[in-house]
């Protein structure tokens, strides 16, 4: 829409009014409409299109791999049941992500669990290995090394407030945009940016402190043999 001034388009976008719909959005709009009229194949296609992002979202919040699939299935069941009430004024993905976030909170509340936490602190040996990975030009290619590195990173993340961990995982790892995070978490875009900036600075701070405490106590290093 070339005639729409930038600020009008931005306001319309903020109000979830479709200004210019892409072809992809048109297809999705049609799929939603068909699913609303009871066409199961259309709903299955919607699942297929969004399953990876919903998995990423739920995994980013819960980080309990065993339960992620169950929660995602529950999300799609809820979406299916309430689909007729969805008026398509906002994007289907926005609505879907909000339901996903609520389902994660519900899950955590009902099960009275917190997202995955590591009780043990990082050993000096583990900090050294993490340092090796962080200093390298590329992340390790070996799957077991990668898995260990991810495990170590998650332990570092544990040092941050829970909401900051979730924001970092969703934005920097799972690839959700700042706008998407703001919408699904009911936060201001600027707030999301500030929190992400602070979380990233804190993560490095935690890591550097670990390294410093590691190098300042050389005699306590784990003995290998």
């Amino acid at each position: 829409m070339p005639d729409v001034p930038k600020n009008v388009a931005a306001t319309a976008s903020a109000l979830s009014i479709p200004v210019a719909r892409s072809e992809k959005a048109d297809i999705e709009h049609d799929l939603v409409r068909r699913a609303q009229s009871g066409e199961e194949a259309a709903f299955e296609e919607l699942i297929r299109r969004h399953q990876q992002r919903v998995f990423g979202l739920v995994n980013g919040i819960l980080r309990r791999r065993d339960d992620v699939e169950d929660v995602v299935q529950q999300v799609f069941l809820k979406v299916f049941v309430s689909l007729k009430r969805f008026d398509q004024r906002s994007a289907f993905s926005t609505w879907l992500y909000k339901i996903s976030v609520n389902e994660c909170w519900d899950y955590l509340r009902k099960r009275k669990v917190r997202p995955l936490t590591y009780e043990a602190d990082l050993s000096e040996d583990q900090v050294s290995r993490l340092d090796g990975v962080a200093s390298a030009d590329k992340p390790p290619e070996d799957p077991s090394q990668r898995a260990e590195a991810r495990d170590l990173l998650e332990r570092m993340l544990e040092r941050l407030p829970e909401e900051d961990q979730q924001l970092l995982m969703l934005k920097e790892v799972e690839g959700f945009s700042v706008q998407e995070l703001a919408e699904m978490l009911n936060l201001n875009v600027n707030t999301v940016k500030v929190r992400l900036f602070r979380s990233r600075a804190r993560l490095t701070e935690v890591y550097k402190r670990k390294l410093e405490s590691n190098t300042s106590q050389p005699n306590t290093r784990e003995k290998r043999g």
């Binding site: 995602v72 990173l153 995982m169 790892v173 799972e174 990233r200 490095t204 701070e205 890591y207």
Partner: peptide, 18 residues
């Protein structure tokens, strides 16, 4: 500090497609 965190965060990979 915030920029350096990218070196740590790149270790984690997005959740794979089911």
């Amino acid at each position: 500090r915030a920029t350096f965190s990218a070196r740590l965060l790149r270790i984690a990979e997005p959740t794979p497609d089911p």
